[in-house]
Design a protein around this nucleic acid. Structure first.
Lengths: 111, 111
DNA sequence: GTGTTAGATTAGTGCATGCTAATGAATTAG
DNA sequence: CTAATTCATTAGCATGCACTAATCTAACAC
């Protein structure tokens, strides 16, 4: 077995690189909780495909699940984006280009 | 020809999802300018592979080039990260989780 | 019990992709 | 001129990946 586990950054990036899977994540994020059937509904792919995408997202730490009866409800786990955040952080993009927004946000939350 | 151009977010994500290609971008970023030969040096892959990766990065808007003699020097184009930035922005992760850092930074620059 | 529904998992398929090796095109050195 | 160097491009190959269709299990309804 030649595992060679990829680092978290690669896992997260790859999970979000596919448009269909990213759309799944976005829908999970927008809903507080959402079932697989409902995710399948507007997706354009089969239920099996959705389950596979959810598995990838879960492995990437981007979603979590809660089983209830025969349903499984998924919710977003934004901390999973942490590798992406710190990577971008390292390249300084946020601070330099988003200054005014930051200031506004801070004022809004702690005036 | 069935182009079906993927949106910028997908292009950028896919460009950065591959570890080798991401490493190329990082080295380009750290150097002000760097030639293909020098990029090839520590990369572990052939020069052809490096050129292919640079092509992907260029299409994603993440690097730019400057030809001089028989050398081609590459430099980073951080604006290319903009799709990623605004995507993350939309999900608010950055602000919420990096609050204290933000506050510190703002104080530091505008006390 | 039978039937139905929600979700995960598997095998199989077609296509994308990362790589090498080889070549091509352009520049420089002699 | 020839020879060497830099980089891009191509063909070919092997692997990865997104998808469907077909199960399989478990939880409900009757």
């Amino acid at each position: 077995m030649i595992e060679a586990a990829p680092n978290p950054m690669t896992t997260v990036m790859r999970a979000l690189a596919d448009p269909t899977r990213r759309a799944v994540f976005e829908r999970v994020f927008e809903s507080k909780e959402i079932s697989v059937a409902e995710l399948t509904r507007g997706s354009g792919v089969t239920q099996g495909a959705i389950s596979q995408h959810l598995k990838s997202l879960k492995q990437a730490g981007l979603v979590a699940e809660r089983a209830e009866g025969r349903n499984v409800y998924y919710r977003a786990a934004p901390q999973g984006l942490e590798p992406l955040v710190s990577w971008m952080d390292h390249y300084g993009v946020f601070w330099r280009e988003r200054f005014q927004n930051l200031r506004d946000l801070l004022k809004e939350i702690d005036p």
